[in-house]
Design a binder for these strands. Structure first.
Lengths: 139, 139
DNA sequence: AGAAATAGTTGCGTTTTGCAACTATTAATT
DNA sequence: AATTAATAGTTGCAAAACGCAACTATTTCT
């Protein structure tokens, strides 16, 4: 997939995919949402090759989706945290998860449920709403 | 990205990405939502290499996201159409588009707006709702 | 100080992509 | 019906991306 081709499509989806469409990137972001912060966390949970993880984390930081901050003040080691731009990817992650749960049989059902932190209630399916709040179906 | 690795994560996101996470696949699906049906439509609009397009369309058909149907009854040539499983990807496409529009500067603003067919009204941002309809923010 | 943990880097083989030319079949034109 | 153009791939080869395992360099812990 040549960068030039995608650019020339001049489309938000194409541009977004240049940032988060490479292999492992979305899974790395999912791990970040689930609380992973450090290189070894991501590596152990995902089993991704270390050199690939390095390049993905670097790119995500460069593009402002993750940020590197010291583990504690004065420390030399750093951790990778979602920026607001990164946290805003939650709709994509949840839409992906729910689509997967609806259409792809896994052996053990839906292994992860999203619940509200405050109430502990499960969230509902992602829906596309019109500006006045009615649900919209495709086409 | 080894298939084995992803499988062992046993996660809807990982499984979903095995189907739609390869290069060009999501853009092909976007074209399908925009009305492309035939091989040359996809190829011309995206500029994707023809051999890649072949393998992606085959996989999407194999997995039930697209289906091949004769262009008209009795015709030898076929077209690629979204199945219900494919149409249900609209949340992911819209979430991606809206994230891109919010965070990625393109030279000419948001080039595509999603509108309701019936009313012509623009749709609102994708939000994650709790089961009783309140909006939920990440964390 | 010494040992263990952490965070990468490096080299190399494999796989996936991209490109362009070529082929085969179907549909349109005369 | 024969010829031409359009459509839908296929093939071979070069370039880029990925995967693996071993190695290195810092930090942190004891």
């Amino acid at each position: 997939m040549s960068k030039n081709n995608l650019d020339s499509l001049n489309c938000s989806v194409a541009t977004a995919l240049e940032l988060i469409g490479e292999g492992w990137t979305i899974l790395i972001l999912r791990e970040a949402f689930f609380g992973s912060r450090r290189f070894e966390d991501f590596q152990k949970h995902l089993g991704v090759a270390r050199n690939i993880l390095t390049t993905r984390l670097n790119k995500l930081c460069d593009k402002g989706i993750l940020e590197r901050t010291p583990i504690k003040q004065g420390a030399k080691r750093h951790e990778y945290k979602l920026t607001p731009m990164g946290r805003d990817l939650h709709t994509i992650l949840i839409a992906l998860t729910q689509w997967g749960d609806r259409w792809l049989q896994t052996d053990q059902g839906a292994p992860v449920k999203f619940v509200e932190r405050v109430t502990g209630e499960e969230i509902s399916d992602v829906t596309i709403l019109s500006k006045d709040g009615r649900e919209i179906k495709p086409r």
